[in-house]
């Protein structure tokens, strides 16, 4: 072995070792690295029962209830498979609306998630307002039933419609559901380990 080969092997070895150690460490901390749980994961008992955690999902259209004269708001968060009612009192981010992806931090009590913070999750799609309008309308009227979720359509979904998981969706129209289906696809098929 020439000295140069030796150095190459050492550098390669360091890189492999660090990569392996990082992979193992990340697998060990898998659950702690989850920024939020979706309603299906909570249903499956993956979320901690005795401490605060985050729930992520889409605000089900038609479920936002505000108490007049206060900041209190109740809404239902869904991942299109399971739903969970959320109760919150405080200021909501600008992007909060029906059909928006949200992440709430708080505690689960008697089937209701009491949030102390609500954040909006943005998706990776950008479009001018007029394009968004023209895409949204045909989707609302024709394919709402099959996509499982259509933005801002009060006709779709009560708290627990149990709508099927989103099927392949037309570009942009299904964007809000897509951002959470990405999370679905990475979840281990075996559920909690």
């Amino acid at each position: 072995m020439t000295p140069r080969r030796k150095r190459l092997a050492v550098v390669g070895g360091i890189l492999l070792g660090v990569a392996a150690a990082t992979t193992v460490a990340m697998q060990a901390f898998e659950d702690n690295l989850l920024y939020f749980y979706d309603p299906s994961q909570i249903q499956a008992g993956m979320a901690p029962a005795d401490k605060k955690f985050r729930i992520g999902g889409l605000v089900t259209p038609g479920t936002i209830q505000r108490t007049p004269g206060s900041l209190e708001v109740r809404f239902v968060v869904t991942d299109n498979a399971h739903s969970m009612p959320v109760s919150y009192s405080g200021l909501l981010p600008d992007l909060f609306r029906e059909g928006q992806g949200v992440i709430a931090h708080g505690r689960l009590q008697n089937g209701v998630f009491y949030a102390d913070e609500v954040l909006a999750k943005h998706d990776e799609n950008y479009m001018p307002p007029e394009v968004a309008k023209s895409i949204k309308h045909p989707v609302n009227t024709t394919t709402a039933g099959t996509t499982g979720y259509a933005p801002e359509n009060p006709a779709v979904g009560g708290p627990s419609t149990g709508a099927p998981p989103p099927s392949p969706q037309p570009h942009a129209a299904g964007s809000l559901a897509e951002q959470f289906s990405t999370a679905d696809s990475i979840r281990k098929p075996g559920g909690p380990t």
């Binding site: 939020f36 954040l119 999750k121 990776e124 950008y126 990475i186």
Partner: peptide
């Protein structure tokens, strides 16, 4: 893509 995150994916 690996974890549920607040940040959106690639555009």
């Amino acid at each position: 893509y690996w974890w549920n995150s607040l940040h959106q994916g690639r555009t």
